[in-house]
């Protein structure tokens, strides 16, 4: 199949990738500098901190929260957030009686501009196969034990619409600032595989 195994320290996929990149440079489809810029963008500029900023703002600014729940992406644009792979964003809100959690069973659709790139587990066969069928069990294995009274809403985001979970704002947190909230909100909260927001930093 043309896979060369004579170079044990370099995986065949690494070699083929290098070959394609070299060819695409040579025939002027792209330059490696263009690619470097995208790598830096995902390594340095976007990530879960972006989403945490959005949620924290919603917790301290009720009008922003209303706009965010009405049209997630338009509200994110107010904070200068946007980019490819999210054309419409629905923010779904956790309450004492409702827990939301997001998956894409067909590939691994994910709100890149808001959360960065998805972690390996989000793309795993285990998560994609199980989350729509037994989310209580999956969440429990991940340390989120939900009583039966709490309704679970699984969002299988197989179209071009993306989802972001707004966790519950912790009780008695009036002393926390927007920045302190943002520090406590993780990627896992915004996908929905974590629920509790710690009070201490």
């Amino acid at each position: 199949m043309g896979h060369n195994h004579a170079h044990p320290e370099k995986a065949w996929q690494a070699i083929r990738t290098e070959a394609i990149e070299s060819l695409l440079n040579e025939i002027n489809v792209l330059t490696s500098e263009d690619v470097d810029k995208v790598v830096r963008h995902y390594e340095e500029n976007v990530g879960p901190k972006t989403g945490a900023r959005v949620i924290a703002r919603a917790w301290v600014d009720p009008e922003f929260k209303t706009r965010l729940l009405a049209d997630g992406l338009v509200a994110c644009e107010e904070l200068g957030i946007g980019g490819p792979e999210t054309e419409l964003l629905h923010v779904v809100e956790n309450t004492p009686r409702v827990h939301n959690v997001v998956v894409c069973t067909l590939c691994s659709c994910y709100p890149w501009p808001i959360l960065g790139l998805p972690p390996a587990w989000y793309k795993s066969s285990a998560y994609r196969s199980r989350l729509v069928r037994e989310p209580r069990k999956v969440l429990s294995e991940l340390g989120v034990d939900l009583p039966d009274e709490v309704e679970i809403r699984v969002w299988d985001s197989v179209s071009e619409i993306r989802y972001l979970v707004m966790p519950e704002k912790p009780d008695h947190s009036e002393n926390l600032s927007e920045a302190e909230f943002a520090e406590r909100i993780t990627r896992d909260h915004m996908i929905g595989v974590a629920r509790h927001i710690p009070q201490a930093g």
Binding site: Q13, L117, S125, A126, Y127, R128, S129, R133, V193
Partner: peptide, 23 residues
């Protein structure tokens, strides 16, 4: 994959880098 059995537990690596391989 929705609903399939047999893929085991979901394993989260909290220290996963943005990209795990250069390629």
């Amino acid at each position: 994959m929705g609903g399939l059995h047999g893929f085991g537990p979901v394993e989260i690596d909290p220290d996963e880098p943005v990209f795990t391989t250069e390629w």
